[in-house]
Amino acid sequence: MRLLNSLNLRGWLLVGTAVCGVVLAGAVATLGSSARAGVALEERKLPMKFNWIACEPNCRGWVSAVGIITADTPKDFEEFSRGRQLGGATVVLDSSGGSVNDAITLGRRFRNLGLLTTVGVSLRGGQSARPAVAPEAYCESMCVFLLLAGKKRYVPEAAHVRVHQIWMGDRADDAKAASYSAQDLMIVERDIGRLAKYTFDMGGAGDLLSLALSVPPWEDLHELDAGELKLTNLVTTDLVADVLPHVDISAPAMAELAPKTQARFGAEPEQSQPAKSTKTAEALVPTGGVAAPAPATQK
């Protein structure tokens, strides 16, 4: 069996972590309707795109990273960053996850550039409105590990950060009924090892791996509460100004995307209604690339 890395053939996925956001000081971040919220949701299910959101002269601007991480994403980021002075910039994430190994590659590039990270829906603004970041959004699956790549990391209270186990994407829909070979198990263990090394290299805690790997694909994604975000070291600051200077937290007029879920350890849930599983990273989306089988371990 092949490990499929491009999204049109589904690929290895880890589903999890929610998204955070912020609004620039003085800006009125208004999506205006649930229809706009729906558009934002659909964009995070498409292959990841990078855009520079300029807000001069009052702030430097930031990188908007929206969508699923595919085999093409690290290359797309290199093309986006060419000719730009991105060192120390902030990346605002809005993603449903994606390929494990490609997310690791991209995350290491983020750290090498000294990027800062948060999560949210970037709003460009208009002629009379300043650009802003809506605080209620999602960062799921491998998006969580991109968040971890930031030198400084901020997660707003309205964000939804969700985790899930690594699994073979082509068998995640009915994981219990699928069959697996010894080669498949080897690939799983190899990639868990890679993810563990990356997590510790980025300064994450073992609790993050423990939480993610305890949630099988046939269960709802687990949403991290404020205590778990700190326990896993996903959050390094409680100040939005540490990642986006001259900003203020303000929730825009945006439809509620999903309820909070119960903590796996720590605080009691705020709501008893569980959120639906959102394995959105497994959508069949063409990426323009051709998937290749994963190489076997060299002996």
Score class of each variant (00 low, 15 high):
Thr90Phe: 06
Gly88Tyr: 03
Leu234Val: 04
Gly97Ile: 03
Ala37Ser: 14
Asn58Gly: 09
Leu239Ile: 09
Cys143Ala: 15
Glu78Ala: 14
Glu79Val: 13
Gln127Asn: 13
Gly107Lys: 00
Thr261Gly: 14
Val240Lys: 03
Asn5Phe: 10
Pro274Ile: 11
Phe110Glu: 05
Ala253Ser: 12
Val243Arg: 00
Ala175Glu: 13
Ile166Met: 10
Arg190Thr: 05
Gly83Val: 08
Ser81Phe: 06
Leu93His: 03
Asp174Gln: 13
Pro135Met: 02
Glu282Leu: 15
Leu239Cys: 12
Glu256Ser: 10
Glu56Asp: 14
Gly169Trp: 00
His222Trp: 10
Lys197Arg: 15
Pro252Arg: 07
Pro293Phe: 03
Thr236Gln: 13
Ala226Gln: 14
Thr73Val: 05
Ser122Tyr: 04
Gly32Ile: 13
Gly126Gln: 13
Asp225Glu: 10
Thr17Arg: 09
Val144Phe: 08
Glu228His: 13
Glu256Gln: 09
Glu270Ala: 11
Pro274His: 04
Ala226His: 10
Gly150Ser: 08
Leu113Asn: 01
Gly88Asn: 03
Val15His: 06
Ala18Lys: 04
Pro156Leu: 08
Pro217Gln: 09
Ile166Pro: 03
Glu79Arg: 15
Gly203Val: 03
Leu211Trp: 02
Thr232Gly: 07
Thr280Val: 00
Ala253Phe: 03
Thr117Gln: 07
Ser214Asp: 08
Val247Ala: 11
Glu78Cys: 07
Gly61Trp: 00
Tyr180Lys: 10
Ser179Gln: 15
Ser179His: 14
Ala35Gly: 03
Arg36Glu: 15
Val133Ala: 00
Phe110Gln: 01
Ala54Cys: 11
Tyr154His: 15
Val28Glu: 07
Val243Met: 09
Gln183Cys: 03
Asn112Asp: 15
Gly206Phe: 07
Ser96Cys: 06
Gly98Ser: 01
Thr199His: 01
Ala65Ser: 14
Gly32Leu: 12
Leu208Pro: 00
Asp174Gly: 04
Asp191Trp: 01
Ala263Asp: 07
Asn51Val: 10
Asn8Lys: 11
Val66Lys: 02
Ala172Cys: 14
Val92Thr: 09
Gly125Leu: 12
Val119Lys: 06
Thr280Met: 02
Ala263Gln: 13
Gly83Met: 07
Ala205Glu: 13
Leu213Pro: 04
Gly38Cys: 06
Arg171Ile: 10
Gly87Glu: 14
Leu14Tyr: 01
Phe200Trp: 12
Gly203Trp: 01
Asp191Glu: 15
Ser128Phe: 09
Gly38Tyr: 07
Thr237Ser: 15
Ala134Lys: 06
Lys45Pro: 00
Pro156Ser: 15
Glu189His: 09
Leu123Gly: 04
Thr118Gly: 04
Leu24Phe: 05
Gly26Met: 12
Gly203Leu: 04
